[in-house]
Measured scan of single mutants.
Amino acid sequence: DIIVVALYDYEAIHHEDLSFQKGDQMVVLEESGEWWKARSLATRKEGYIPSNYVARVD
C-alpha cells in the first residue's frame, strides 16, 4: 500500500473530496493526475485528495 501523510489541512470542497488535517495518514487507492482517491487511516472515510497536499511515507 502507498501511505501518505498530510502536509497541510484540507477542507473538502465537493462531496466526493476527503477532508484531512496536517499529519493525518491516508492509504492511496488510486493515483490519477492531481487528485488521488484515498482512505483515511483514522476515520476509514474515502474520497479524493489534492496530491500536492501530501507526501509519501517511506
Results as ranks from 00 to 15, higher is better:
H14V: 08
P50I: 03
H15Y: 11
Q21V: 14
F20R: 00
S19C: 10
L29D: 03
V5Y: 09
W36R: 06
E46V: 11
I49E: 00
W35C: 10
S19V: 06
A12N: 06
G23W: 04
I2R: 05
K37D: 01
F20S: 00
E30V: 06
A6N: 01
V27N: 02
H15K: 14
V27Y: 04
I49Y: 01
G23D: 05
Q21R: 13
R44N: 08
L7T: 13
R44F: 13
S51V: 11
G33F: 05
A42Q: 05
Q25V: 04
P50N: 08
D17K: 15
I49F: 04
H15V: 14
E11Q: 14
A12M: 08
E16I: 13
M26R: 00
V54S: 01
I2T: 04
V4C: 13
N52Q: 09
K37R: 10
E46W: 06
R56A: 09
V4G: 02
Y10Q: 02
S32F: 15
Q21L: 12
V54Q: 01
K45I: 08
G33R: 08
I13V: 05
F20W: 00
E46D: 05
K45G: 12
I49N: 00
H14C: 06
V27S: 06
L41V: 12
T43P: 02
A12E: 04
D24G: 02
G33I: 04
Y8L: 08
G23L: 03
L29I: 09
E31L: 07
S19D: 07
V28W: 02
K45V: 12
K45Q: 13
H15I: 09
Y8S: 09
I2E: 04
D24Q: 09
S32L: 06
S40P: 05
V28I: 12
A55D: 11
R39H: 09
S51K: 11
Q25W: 05
G33L: 10
E46N: 07
E46R: 06
V4L: 10
S51M: 13
V28Q: 01
D24E: 03
P50T: 02
H14S: 09
Y8Q: 05
G23T: 02
A6G: 10
K45E: 14
H14N: 13
I49D: 00
L29N: 06
G23Q: 01
L29W: 08
D17W: 07
V28P: 01
A6C: 06
N52I: 09
V27P: 03
Y8R: 11
S32E: 14
V28T: 02
Y8T: 05
E11T: 11
L7D: 05
K37G: 03
D24T: 03
S19W: 03
L41N: 04
Y8A: 07
H15R: 14
V4Y: 12
D9L: 02
L41A: 10
E30W: 06
R39N: 03
A38Y: 02
L41F: 11
A42E: 13
S32P: 07
A12L: 02
V4P: 00
I2L: 06
V54N: 01
E16Y: 14
V54E: 00
E16F: 12
R56D: 06
D1G: 14
Y8H: 12
D58N: 11
N52Y: 04
D58C: 12
S51D: 03
R39G: 02
Q21P: 01
W35Y: 08
I2G: 04
V27F: 04
D24K: 04
F20M: 06
L29S: 08
S51I: 11
G33E: 10
G47Q: 00
G23S: 05
E30R: 04
Q21E: 07
Y53Q: 11
L7M: 12
R39S: 08
A38P: 00
K45W: 05
Y10L: 06
V27L: 14
S51T: 09
R44P: 10
A38F: 01
Y48N: 15
F20E: 00
E11I: 05
R39I: 08
Q21A: 12
R39Y: 03
K37M: 14
R44W: 06
I2Y: 13
D24C: 07
V5R: 11
I2K: 10
V54R: 01
T43F: 03
G33Q: 13
E11C: 15
N52V: 08
N52L: 07
T43Y: 06
V4F: 12
G47L: 00
K22W: 00
S51Y: 05
R56P: 05
V28S: 01
E46Y: 02
